Deep mutational scan, measured.
Amino acid sequence: ENVVSAPMPGKVLRVLVRVGDRVRVGQGLLVLEAMKMENEIPSPRDGVVKRILVKEGEIVDTGQPKIELG
């Protein structure tokens, strides 16, 4: 899985990584606000952040790609 998608609709509060960052499985990639709760979205695997496809403040839909890992 190279693309991390939104598990639920919500607002991107914070992006916790930058392009080029090495990430580990379970590491937080971003914080999504859904139903007035903050949810940290974890990396599904070890890898390197290739692209960030969302911006802080953006509203995302379920299944929308957010971060691409290499």
Rank of each mutant, 00 (worst) to 15 (best):
Q64V: 08
G47H: 03
V54N: 01
V4M: 05
P9M: 10
L53M: 13
R24L: 11
D61Y: 15
K11C: 09
T62I: 13
M8A: 08
M35P: 03
P9W: 11
M8K: 06
I41T: 03
R24A: 10
L29F: 02
G26A: 05
V17W: 00
D61P: 06
L16N: 03
K50H: 10
R45L: 12
L53N: 04
M8S: 09
I67D: 02
R18C: 11
K36H: 14
D61T: 15
M37K: 12
V17H: 02
R45I: 15
P9R: 14
V60M: 04
E38V: 11
K50V: 14
G28S: 13
G10W: 09
P42H: 10
I67W: 03
N39Q: 14
V48T: 10
V60A: 03
M37W: 08
P9A: 13
P65G: 10
V48P: 02
E40M: 14
Q27T: 08
I67H: 02
R14C: 09
I59Q: 11
L53S: 03
S5I: 13
P42G: 10
G57S: 04
T62W: 11
M37Q: 13
R18I: 09
R22F: 14
L32I: 14
P65N: 07
N39W: 15
R24M: 11
D21C: 10
V3M: 14
V25Q: 13
R51K: 12
I41N: 01
G10L: 05
E68F: 13
Q64D: 10
G57D: 05
K11D: 00
V3S: 07
N39R: 14
E1K: 12
I41R: 01
V17N: 01
E56C: 08
R14L: 06
G47Y: 04
G20L: 06
S5T: 13
L30I: 12
V60N: 02
G70D: 14
G47M: 03
V17M: 02
G20S: 05
G57T: 03
E58P: 02
V17G: 00
Q64G: 05
R22P: 10
V12N: 00
Q27A: 05
R51V: 08
D46N: 12
K50F: 10
I59N: 11
N2R: 10
E38T: 11
E38L: 12
G70F: 15
L16I: 05
G57R: 03
Q64W: 08
M35L: 12
M35H: 13
R24W: 12
R14H: 06
M37E: 11
E58S: 09
T62F: 12
R24G: 08
R51C: 10
G20Q: 04
G70H: 14
V4L: 08
V3Y: 14
E58Y: 06
G28D: 03
R14Y: 06
K66A: 15
G26I: 04
M37A: 10
V17C: 08
V12R: 01
V4S: 04
S5H: 12
G20N: 07
G20M: 07
A6E: 04
V60R: 02
D21E: 13
E40Y: 13
E68L: 15
A34P: 01
M8W: 15
D21F: 09
A34E: 04
D21L: 09
V54Q: 01
E1T: 14
L13A: 05
G20A: 05
P65F: 08
K55W: 10
V15A: 00
I67K: 01
Q27V: 05
K11A: 04
N2H: 14
K66D: 07
L69E: 03
M37S: 10
P44Y: 04
R18H: 10
L30S: 01
E1G: 13
L30G: 00
L13H: 03
G28Q: 07
Q64N: 05
P42D: 05
R45D: 04
I59V: 11
V60D: 02
E33H: 08
L16E: 00
Q27C: 06
E40D: 06
G28F: 10
K50L: 14
P7F: 10
V60W: 05
L13P: 00
K11Q: 06
N2W: 15
D46M: 08
I41D: 01
G70T: 13
E40V: 15
L69V: 08
E1F: 13
V25R: 14
E56V: 14
V15M: 08
P9I: 08
G10R: 03
E40A: 08
L13Q: 04
V4R: 03
T62L: 12
D61I: 14
V49T: 01
K50E: 08
R22W: 14
V19P: 07
L32E: 00
L29M: 06
L29N: 00
L29Y: 01
P42M: 12
A6C: 12
E38N: 09
E38P: 09
K66N: 15
L69I: 13
A34H: 14
E33W: 15
D61H: 14
R22V: 13
D61W: 14
E56T: 09
L13M: 08
E68Q: 09
E58A: 08
E56G: 05
V54L: 02
A6D: 04
S43Y: 02
L30K: 00
V23I: 08
V15W: 07
V4Q: 04
G57F: 06
V54R: 03
V19Q: 07
L29H: 00
V4D: 03
A6H: 04
K50Q: 10
G70S: 13
D46T: 09
L13Y: 03
V4K: 04
S43L: 03
K36Q: 14
P9H: 11
S43I: 03
K36A: 13
R14M: 06
V54G: 02
A34S: 13
V25T: 12
E56Q: 10
G20R: 05
L30R: 00
Q27F: 05
E33R: 08
L29C: 06
V15L: 13
L16A: 00
V49Y: 00
K50G: 05
L53H: 07
R14A: 07
R18S: 11
L69T: 02
V4P: 04
A6L: 06
S5N: 10
L16S: 01
E68D: 05
V17K: 01
G28K: 10
V48S: 05
P7I: 11
K50S: 10
V31C: 06
R22L: 12
R45N: 07
D46Y: 08
I52A: 02
M8R: 08
R51S: 09
E58V: 05
V54K: 02
R45V: 14
S5M: 12
R18W: 06
V23E: 01
L32F: 12
R22H: 13
M37Y: 08
A34C: 14
L69P: 01
L16R: 04
V25F: 12
V23W: 04
G20I: 04
L53R: 04
L29I: 07
M37T: 11
T62N: 08
G26N: 07
V31T: 07
E68G: 04
E38A: 11
P42Y: 12
V54F: 03
G47C: 05
T62A: 15
K55I: 11
V60C: 08
G63Q: 06
L16W: 01
T62K: 14
A34V: 14
K36C: 15
V23D: 01
V23Q: 01
P42W: 09
G20W: 06
R51H: 08
D21I: 10
L53G: 03
L13T: 08
S43M: 02
L13W: 02
T62H: 09
V48Q: 07
K11W: 08
L53E: 02
Q64F: 06
S5Q: 09
R14D: 00
G28Y: 09
K36N: 15
